[in-house]
Amino acid sequence: TEYKLVVVGAGGVGKSALTIQLIQNHFVDEYDPTIEDSYRKQVVIDGETCLLDILDTAGQEEYSAMRDQYMRTGEGFLCVFAINNTKSFEDIHQYREQIKRVKDSDDVPMVLVGNKCDLAARTVESRQAQDLARSYGIPYIETSAKTRQGVEDAFYTLVREIRQH
């Protein structure tokens, strides 16, 4: 089974770092803004072998026109913010609204991801993020692309959301 996953969120929150940590098991430290990259990885989730087709997208506003296209083809979405960047957390709402509009559905598989949880300088409390996820009816997972904490959990949870859909 193949799953088309799309990673969305503001610029600099760590979308590529999360994806590369999942696929290649290493942490990319330097920031190089993405336009669009796709990665494929075969994994076993709950005993089922599946192929993850992951689209890593641009957070930069100037590429926002490309969003409709990949939102149409994606089956599930990782909505990523950084726990030390309140603005990126506030941006999640717009991504969710755009996904709902493009998919013409209120019920699209999504996982809210709070990345950079290895950093002490948190400005978005776990509780705020949990409340937001609960209001959307989606899971919330904290990750660190640096330490790998929660990385597999985030992507695998999204696959489970798609399966249950």
Rank of each mutant, 00 (worst) to 15 (best):
K103C: 02
A154P: 10
Q130M: 13
V151A: 11
N25S: 12
R148V: 12
Q42F: 13
T123H: 09
D91R: 15
E142T: 04
V43Y: 12
A120N: 12
E30W: 05
L55V: 08
I141V: 15
I54M: 11
A154W: 00
Y3N: 08
A121H: 11
G114C: 10
L112T: 01
C50S: 10
K100R: 12
D91Y: 13
L78V: 09
T143S: 05
R160Q: 13
L22I: 08
Y140M: 00
E30I: 10
Y39F: 12
D46K: 09
E152H: 11
V80L: 09
V43N: 14
E152W: 09
I99R: 01
E61H: 13
V111C: 04
R134T: 13
Y156I: 14
Q24A: 15
Q69T: 07
E152G: 08
T157H: 14
R160I: 02
S144C: 15
D32W: 05
C50T: 14
D118N: 02
F155D: 00
K15M: 03
A133E: 04
T73G: 12
D37L: 01
I83P: 12
E62S: 07
E75N: 02
K4E: 14
R67D: 13
T57H: 06
T19L: 05
V113S: 00
L158H: 00
S16L: 01
A133W: 07
T49I: 08
R127K: 12
M66I: 15
T1E: 07
I138R: 04
D56C: 00
V108K: 01
Y31G: 04
Q149L: 11
R160T: 11
A129I: 04
N85G: 08
V6K: 04
C79G: 03
Q130T: 09
L22P: 04
I20L: 08
A145Y: 00
M66K: 08
V8D: 01
R72F: 01
I92L: 07
C79F: 12
D104H: 11
K41G: 11
Q149V: 07
Q24S: 15
Y140W: 03
A82E: 15
Q21E: 11
K41Q: 10
G47H: 10
T49Q: 14
Y140P: 00
F27Y: 12
I35F: 06
D32C: 04
K41C: 09
F27G: 04
S16T: 12
R163C: 10
H93N: 15
T49Y: 08
D32H: 09
K146T: 12
R101S: 03
Q164A: 08
T34N: 03
K15F: 04
Y31L: 11
V111F: 13
I23Q: 06
R101L: 04
K116N: 15
E2H: 06
P33S: 07
I54T: 08
G137H: 00
G11Y: 10
T34G: 01
Q42Y: 07
G74L: 05
I23Y: 12
D37H: 01
K146A: 14
A133Q: 03
S38R: 04
V151L: 14
C117H: 09
K87E: 15
F155H: 00
K116L: 15
V113F: 00
Q128D: 13
A129L: 14
E125F: 11
T73E: 15
G150L: 09
K4G: 07
K103V: 06
K103T: 06
Q130W: 08
Y95I: 13
D68K: 02
Y95N: 07
V102F: 10
G14T: 00
M71H: 06
D107V: 09
Q60A: 15
D104C: 09
K41D: 11
V43W: 12
S16I: 02
C117M: 12
D153C: 10
N84I: 09
D131N: 03
V8G: 04
N25R: 13
S64T: 13
P33V: 06
K4N: 15
Q98T: 15
P139F: 03
Y31C: 02
E161V: 08
P109R: 10
Q149D: 09
R148S: 08
T86E: 11
A82T: 10
L5S: 01
R122Q: 08
S16E: 01
A17F: 00
R163L: 13
F81I: 14
E75C: 09
A82G: 12
L132G: 02
G74T: 02
V44Q: 12
E48A: 11
Y63R: 14
A129W: 10
S16P: 00
V44R: 12
V7C: 04
I20F: 03
E2A: 07
I23K: 11
R148M: 15
S126E: 14
K103I: 02
A129V: 07
P109C: 08
T34R: 02
L78P: 02
E30D: 05
A133M: 02
R127I: 05
V80H: 02
K146R: 09
M66A: 07
C50A: 12
S64R: 09
A121R: 05
G14W: 04
C50V: 12
C79A: 10
S64Q: 07
Q128N: 10
D104N: 12
I99T: 07
Y136S: 03
T157C: 10
V6A: 06
A120C: 13
L5M: 07
D37M: 01
L112A: 06
Q21P: 03
R101P: 03
L78H: 01
G74F: 00
H165T: 13
F155P: 01
E161H: 09
S135L: 06
K41Y: 08
L119H: 08
I99V: 06
V124K: 12
L78S: 00
F155L: 09
M110D: 00
F81Q: 00
R122V: 07
D106W: 09
A82C: 12
I45P: 08
G9Y: 00
I99S: 01
T49H: 11
K41L: 08
Q60R: 15
E75S: 11
F77R: 00
E161N: 13
L112W: 05
D29A: 09
R122P: 12
V113N: 00
K87H: 05
S144Q: 15
